[in-house]
């Protein structure tokens, strides 16, 4: 468990230093005051927590401060982390890698353009392979130029099986074929990489529904996992994205990517608040092993610079 937190903290190191540098003065051993509360507000907002969560954390710290004017920064940080943990209670998604159902367990990766679906698909496949599971990739982004080649390049590099067609092919047909292939070869998992689409485009959302329908012809339960891949550097719009995808595709999980920068990925808090969809993984770097399971405790501690 400690090892996990360490890895998490390493990936999040820049994040921690970014938020902690602002709040060091507050979250040290000094008592807080009115002006440090404003600095705190700023730090919370710049983490993209959104208006609601920021307000909640501030209110609790202020209330504690009212009761005890000698409140120290460390204590305030602990209150903030506690609020975050409360808001995120139950948000840890855990993928059961032990399943052996006789049919491949299907994970569909969906999201807007450029959120990191293809890279996440490859990283996840690699992770499964490391755990000794067998996995097939389905290259269902048949729209964007060279998207198929991108996933193929990953598959070759990581030595993972892939089913692909050409750009412009029917994505649902590729999904269907990939499932058949995975099934006949007795694979444990099938990861379906789909084309990026903005959640406001009805026709493209309809295409997703078609992929689902076609997969269900093979196995009524497929795709068992429908994960939204969200760019962690985005702001409140990621909540709109999640809502729309959830409405039309019934999300079962989230993956938040690109958190190796200085983004705090606070939007995940907003998404979880609104939709209660569990968060499975965070993308903390460009290497295959940088896809890390989400941990509320680690996240809350990392954000507030606690040990």
């Amino acid at each position: 468990m400690f090892g996990l937190f360490k890895k998490f903290k390493e990936g999040f190191a820049k994040t921690v230093s970014a938020i902690a540098s602002k709040t060091a003065a507050i979250f040290g051993q000094k008592p807080i005051d009115a002006s440090s509360l404003e600095t705190l507000e700023e730090a919370l907002y710049t983490a993209d927590f959104g208006v609601e969560t920021t307000g909640e954390i501030l209110a609790e710290i202020k209330a504690a401060y009212k009761k005890d004017a000698t409140l120290h920064g460390q204590q305030a940080a602990a209150i903030g982390a506690a609020v975050l943990k409360r808001v995120l209670a139950g948000s840890e998604g855990r993928l059961d890698l032990s399943v052996a159902t006789g049919s491949p367990v299907v994970i569909a990766m969906i999201g807007v353009n450029g959120s990191g679906k293809t890279t996440t698909s490859a990283k996840l496949a690699w992770k499964m392979k490391q755990e000794g599971r067998t996995v097939t990739l389905a290259a269902c982004d048949t729209f964007r130029a060279a998207a198929v080649e991108q996933l193929k390049a990953w598959a070759t590099r990581l030595e993972i099986e892939i089913i692909a067609s050409h750009t412009g092919a029917d994505s649902a047909a590729v999904a269907f074929d990939a499932w058949q292939a995975a099934k006949s070869r007795g694979r444990d998992f099938l990861i379906v990489d789909t084309a990026g689409r903005l959640h406001t485009k009805g026709n493209l959302m309809e295409e997703l529904a078609k992929i689902r329908r076609v997969l269900q012809k093979n196995d009524p339960a497929a795709p068992q996992h429908r994960w939204l891949v969200v760019d962690g550097s985005l702001g409140s719009n990621s909540i709109e994205q999640a809502k729309a995808f959830h409405q039309s595709f019934g999300l079962t999980g989230l993956v938040v990517t690109k958190l190796d920068g200085t983004s705090r990925g606070g939007a995940l808090v907003g998404i979880y608040r609104q939709l209660k969809i569990p968060i499975y993984f965070l993308g903390l770097g460009e290497q295959p092993e940088d896809l890390q399971p989400f941990s509320v405790d680690s996240y809350a501690k990392a954000v507030f610079g606690l040990e």
Binding site: Y45, V112, G114, D231, S236
Partner: peptide
């Protein structure tokens, strides 16, 4: 830049 960037936009 992605039009949906959050607070991070400033640092970037």
């Amino acid at each position: 830049a992605d039009g949906a960037l959050g607070q991070e936009a400033v640092n970037v």
